[in-house]
Simulated assay, not measured.
Amino acid sequence: MRIRIISATVGIPIVLLAIWLELPGIAALTVLAGLVGGFELDRMMRPGTSRTGSSRIVSLVMGPALLASIAAWMVSDGRLSGDQMPIFLAIVFALAVLVRGTATLGRSSSDRNPNEWVYWVFAAYVGLALAHAPVLVSLDSGRELILLAILTTFAVDSVALFVGVSIGRHRLAPSISPKKSWEGAVGGVVGGVIAAIAIDAAFDIPFSVVTAGILGAVLGVTGVVGDLYESWIKRRADVKDSGTLIPGHGGILDRLDSVIPDLAVVYWATVWSSL
C-alpha cells in the first residue's frame, strides 16, 4: 500500500501539470502513454522472451502514440473539429487494420501467437481512445472536461472497490477478473452519477444536472467494460500486470484501462450536447 501511495504522490502532480498546460501537456502525456502502452502490448504478445519483431514494434508501439500525435497536430493546426472527428476516426481505424494485416505477412506460423489478432485490435482501440485526449482538452472548458473524465473514473473505481469488498457476493466476470462483483459494478455506476453531478457543479461545466447524471452512469459502465477488456487481454497473455512502470500499480495500461474509454465518452457527450 505504501508503494501505491508513493507512486500516486508522484503521478498525480504530473497529470495535473499536463492538464494545466492544456494541449501541449496533454499531447505530450498522451503520446508518452501511447509509446509505453505499445511496448507493454508487444511484450504481452511474446511473453517470456526478449525478441521483438520490427514490423510489430512499428505498428503496436508507434501505433497508439502516432494516433495521439496526429490528433494533437490536427487540433493545434486548426484542422480538426467535432464535425470532422467521425471521418478522421474511420480513416484511422481503416489504416490501423491495414497495418495489422501487412505487418504479419511473410511471417511463419510458428513465429506467431495464434491469438495475436486480439492484441492488434486492442492496440487500435488504445490509440483511438488516446487520440481523444488532446481533442477533448482543446474544447471550451477543456481542462475541466479532462478532470471530469479522470475524477469520475476514479470515483467509479473507488466506490466499486469499496462496495465489492463490503457486500460483493455475485461475481461479474469470474473467468476474467474474479474479484469484481455485480454489487461493486452497480455501486460504481451510482458513484459515477453522484461524482459527475458534483464535478459538473463544482467546475461550472455547461451540462445540466440530468445530462451530468446520465454521463456519470455511462462513464461508470464504460469504465467497468474498459477494465474488463484490458483484464481479458492480460488473461490471453497469461500475465498479471501489463507492465512494471508504476510500482504497486502495474503498467500504464493497468492505470488507463478505465480512463481512456471515458475520455472518448466525455468528448462525444460534449460535442453532441452542443449541437
Score class of each variant (00 low, 15 high):
P47D: 15
P47F: 09
P47V: 04
P47M: 07
P47L: 11
P47C: 06
P47Q: 10
P47T: 05
G48V: 05
G48F: 06
T49V: 05
S50V: 02
S50W: 08
S50L: 08
S50A: 10
R51P: 01
R51H: 14
R51V: 06
R51E: 11
R51Q: 14
T52H: 12
T52Y: 03
T52I: 03
T52P: 02
T52Q: 10
G53D: 12
G53N: 10
S54W: 12
S54H: 08
S54D: 08
S54I: 01
S55F: 12
S55R: 11
S55Q: 10
R56N: 03
R56H: 06
R56C: 02
I57S: 00
I57Y: 00
I57M: 02
I57P: 00
I57Q: 00
V58G: 08
V58F: 04
V58T: 05
S59Q: 05
S59H: 09
S59F: 07
S59I: 03
S59R: 01
S59K: 01
L60H: 06
L60V: 10
L60W: 04
L60D: 06
L60T: 02
L60A: 03
L60G: 04
V61G: 02
V61H: 03
M62Q: 06
M62A: 14
G63A: 14
G63V: 01
G63I: 00
G63R: 02
G63K: 02
G63L: 09
P64N: 13
P64M: 08
P64R: 04
P64S: 13
A65T: 04
A65G: 10
A65N: 03
A65V: 05
L66R: 07
L66I: 09
L66F: 15
L66T: 10
L67P: 13
L67C: 14
L67S: 14
L67E: 13
L67N: 14
L67A: 14
A68N: 10
A68F: 12
S69C: 10
S69A: 15
S69G: 11
S69E: 04
S69Y: 12
I70H: 11
I70G: 07
I70F: 15
I70L: 15
I70A: 15
A71C: 13
A71N: 12
A71F: 08
A71K: 02
A71W: 00
A72Q: 03
A72Y: 03
A72G: 13
A72C: 14
A72H: 07
W73N: 06
W73R: 01
W73Q: 04
W73M: 11
W73L: 13
M74E: 15
M74K: 06
M74N: 13
M74Q: 14
V75R: 02
V75C: 01
V75G: 00
S76R: 10
S76M: 13
S76V: 02
S76F: 13
D77I: 02
D77N: 15
D77A: 14
